[in-house]
Design a protein around this nucleic acid. Sequence first.
DNA 1: TATACGTGGCC
DNA 2: TGGCCAAGTAT
Length: 355
Amino acid sequence: MLPSAADLLAWYDRHRRVLPWRVLAGERPDAYRVWASEIMLQQTTIAAVKPYYERFMARFPTVAALAAAPSEEVMQAWAGLGYYSRARNLHACAMAVVAEHGGRFPDTEEGLRSLPGIGAYTAGAVAAIAFDRPAAAVDGNVERVMTRLFAIEDLLPGARPLVRDRVLALMPHDRPGDFAQGLMDLGATICTPRNPACGLCPWREPCLARIAGTQESFPRKAKKKAGATRYGAAFVLTRTDGAVLLRTRPPKGLLGGMAEVPTSEWRADYELDGAAQDAPVVTRWRQLAPPVRHVFTHFPLELTVFAAKAPAGMQAPPGMRFTAAGRLGEEPFSSVMLKVLETAGAYGMTPKTRD
DNA sequence: TATACGTGGCC
DNA sequence: TGGCCAAGTAT
């Protein structure tokens, strides 16, 4: 028995998930909303995205509204979601859609692919979901489903073209958008990484991995090695009027464009003894404990927090600013920076309560 | 092809 | 606790 799109679509019609960015069955969704949700969902869980998506749509209801917004406002709306280059590209993409496409998203995979922040997956997903094009949207869910279904032994990401070919071969001529979403829903709810619910799967009979009993060993992928811990010092300078000394990180690279208190470099061999030389001003710094620990995708970070007071009239050093206590909520702080500020008692909001 | 790029939840 | 994982993209 071979897998068929009809079996998946029948399952999808009964079990499709209700999601904020998903319209009712049979309705054509707004490309802007589909696109925004796809960008947010890159490497990010639905639970994390939901509150951001709702706020984002209320704040920027149309692609024109997003394009017209200041970049600081976009970064602030994204703060806490991670992978901040997504926010920069999102903004650039909105401006390109307005300036080069008359405010409407291209309705082809190729047209979408040429926009900033839209790669192979997102181009396929938007083309399929928003425009019902027969495009393959190969994400982690689809990779898992297809490598199991066909027992594809090749390592990812090398096997991706093969997965894509399999998806295109199964693609129905009608309802390609539902097929794309059904594939993802199946991966997210049935064909899960651990303990897949094979008994409930519409493709349980043709699934080669299930037949062999090896479903959990797919997809095959190379192990990636963890980076070495980096260390550094963070300096929280609070004026007596409550304002905190801040700066903005360079637009590209780690936490690009996000707000932070001044810090030393973050290095594996950082020596805390010389931390005073990295401070933004010469004053009496108090070392706080314990240090802030944070884990990025490619390395763990340990920041020792130093705090000091400054007179109310103090001016910020070049390239830095004092932000009033009442306006800290408007700054685009990353989660690691919120931990630093909380350690210093300069900000009462933890990452978890940011919503 | 390999690496940089966040964050929070789960076991 | 530590490694893995979540609707990837850019370089």
